[in-house]
C-alpha cells in the first residue's frame, strides 16, 4: 500500500488507457509533447488518426501500431492473436491501405506461460494473416518473469500502401455515414467472458480483418469515400464523435438504422451498457459522398463481411463536433464514453 505522501504523486490510471479523452490528454500532454512530427507526413502523430501517412517515393505509405493486452487472451470468437492481426490490418485499411505490405509482431510473454497456448495464439495470428493477405515481416519475442506480466501482450505495427487516403477528418456535410457490420459483439463477448457473467447465449466476438471488404468499398467508391474509421475502444460513439470533431461537421444518426444484434442489445440491457459505447474490431465506419452511398452499400452487402452494412446517418453542417442521435422518441447527443466498461478489451 502506498502511503499518503506517495498518493499525492499523480499516477496513471486505467482510464488513461481506454482510448478516450483521458488517453488523448495523457498522450498529448505527456507522451508526445516533446516530439517533432515528421516534416513530410501527410497524416502524422498529431492527427491522432488510425495510422500515419508518409510519402515514400511516389507512394503513400501508411504506418500504424497497436499493442494488444486483451484479457482474457482467449475469448469466444477469437483470441489475442487474431485480434492483434485484425487490429493493425484494420487500422491500415481504414486509412485506405487495404493492401498490407508488412506487419511486425512484438510478443511479450510471461515466464511459465503454457507453450501450447502460445502456439494456438501464433496459429491464429497466421490464420488471420492469410485471411488478410498480410505477411508478418519482422518479429520480436520477449519473456518477462512470472508475475511481471499477466500472460501475454502482442504489439503489431503495420505498413501498407494507399492509393487514396481516407483519414477520419475529411467528412463533409451531406456525406452518408455507413457502418459495415453489426456493432458491439466484440466488446460484449469479452465483457461477458472476462467478468465470468455466464450468459448462456452465444455471445461471440466478430473480430476479423476487413481490408478485403474495404478494398471492395474503395473499388466502387474511390475518391467518393471521404473518410473511414475503426470504431474500436470507444465504440461507435467514440469514433463518430472523433470524426465529427476532426472534420468540423456534425453527425446525425438514427437509432433504429444502426445494426445491432438482439444478443448484444439484450446483454447491454442486462448489464446497463450502451452498445454504442462498446468496443468493436472488424467493423468500419465510412463517410461516403451521397451519390456513391448506394453503390458502396451494394458492394458491402455483396461481400460476406458486409451483409449487415447499413447507412446510419449523415454529416451535417450544424452541431459541429457533435453527434446527434434521433432515438425515435426524442433527440440527444451521442457522447463518447469517458471511461470504458472493460479496460483490457484490445
Amino acid at each position: 500500500m502506498n502511503d499518503t505522501a506517495s498518493d499525492e504523486e499523480e499516477r496513471i490510471t486505467l482510464t488513461h488507457g481506454t482510448g478516450g479523452q483521458a488517453t488523448r490528454d495523457l498522450v498529448s500532454e505527456t507522451l508526445t509533447a516533446g516530439f517533432e512530427d515528421a516534416g513530410d507526413a501527410l497524416v502524422g502523430l498529431a492527427d491522432f488518426d488510425d495510422g500515419a501517412v508518409l510519402p515514400v517515393g511516389d507512394k503513400k505509405l501508411v504506418v500504424t501500431t497497436d499493442t494488444h493486452v486483451v484479457q482474457p487472451p482467449f475469448f469466444p470468437g477469437g483470441d489475442i492473436g487474431r485480434l492483434a492481426v485484425s487490429g493493425t490490418v484494420n487500422d491500415l485499411a481504414v486509412m485506405g491501405a487495404t493492401e498490407v505490405r508488412g506487419l511486425t509482431s512484438g510478443v511479450v510473454v510471461e515466464a511459465n506461460y503454457p507453450r501450447e497456448k502460445l502456439e494456438r495464439i501464433a496459429d491464429s495470428m497466421a490464420e488471420a494473416c492469410r485471411e488478410a493477405d498480410a505477411p508478418v515481416v519482422s518479429g520480436d519475442t520477449k519473456v518477462m518473469g512470472n508475475g511481471e506480466l499477466d500472460g501475454i501482450t502482442i504489439n503489431t505495427a503495420g505498413v501498407g500502401v494507399a492509393e487514396h487516403v481516407t483519414p477520419d477528418s475529411d467528412l463533409s456535410p451531406q456525406d452518408v455515414i455507413i457502418v459495415t457490420d453489426t456493432i458491439g459483439e466484440h466488446g460484449i463477448a469479452l465483457l461477458a467472458e472476462r467478468e465470468g457473467i455466464d450468459f448462456e447465449a452465444d455471445l461471440e466476438s466478430d473480430v476479423q480483418p476487413v481490408n478485403d471488404l474495404l478494398a471492395a468499398v474503395l473499388e466502387v467508391g474511390g475518391e467518393a469515400v471521404t473518410a473511414m474509421k475503426d470504431p474500436t475502444r470507444t465504440g461507435l460513439a467514440g469514433a463518430l464523435n472523433e470524426m465529427a470533431r476532426k472534420s468540423e461537421v456534425g453527425i446525425e444518426v438514427t437509432d433504429e438504422r444502426v445494426p445491432v444484434t438482439g444478443d448484444v442489445t439484450g446483454a447491454g440491457e442486462l448489464l446497463g451498457l450502451d452498445p454504442y459505447q462498446i468496443a468493436n474490431e472488424g467493423v468500419a465506419i465510412l463517410g461516403v459522398e451521397p451519390t456513391a452511398a448506394e453503390p458502396v452499400l451494394a458492394a458491402l452487402r455483396d461481400h460476406p463481411k458486409g451483409e449487415n452494412a447499413a447507412a446510419i446517418g449523415k454529416a451535417i453542417d450544424d452541431h459541429h463536433g457533435r453527434v446527434v442521435l434521433d432515438t425515435g422518441i426524442g433527440n440527444r447527443y451521442m457522447r463518447e464514453p469517458s471511461k470504458e466498461a472493460v479496460p483490457r478489451i484490445c
Binding site: V176, V258, P259, A293
Partner: peptide
C-alpha cells in the same frame, strides 16, 4: 420492428430517408 435499415430500396430512397438532397 425496426428492420428499415436493412431494406432500403434504391439510391434515391436512401438519400430521401436520410434527408439528403442531391
Amino acid at each position: 420492428p425496426a428492420a428499415g435499415a436493412q431494406e432500403e430500396g434504391d439510391d434515391d430512397d436512401l438519400l430521401e430517408e436520410l434527408g439528403i438532397d442531391v
